[in-house]
Amino acid sequence: MKRALAFLSLVVIFAALLMALSPEYGIKFGLGGEDWKKYRYTDDYYIKHGVEEVGGMNIVTDIVFDYRGYDTLGEATVLFTAIAGAVALLRPWRREKHE
């Protein structure tokens, strides 16, 4: 019973997401021309001004390290925390060391 309800709600969520992804109601794919200027103006700015403002030819590196450096800082923190947690959890237990 619970399983059937869970499966039913999954189907409902999936249908709603499919609806949101359809070009008639929701987002569009393969933007170009006027739509590019209308929906992707931020990307347009990065592509046009990235090289002169940051200096790197790699626009992705320009964005993740300069324009949105805080995001990369948080990403590095997440990595650090994950490594620290994994290493801390994988240490030998206190009892096993004496055996």
């Binding site: 940051v54 200096g55 790197g56 030819m57 590196t61 320009d62 390290f65 300069d66 990369t72």
Partner: peptide
Amino acid sequence: KPGTLLSAGFLPIMN
């Protein structure tokens, strides 16, 4: 100059 190895400010250091 952009495109040379010693360009792009702190990006190489951060990398």
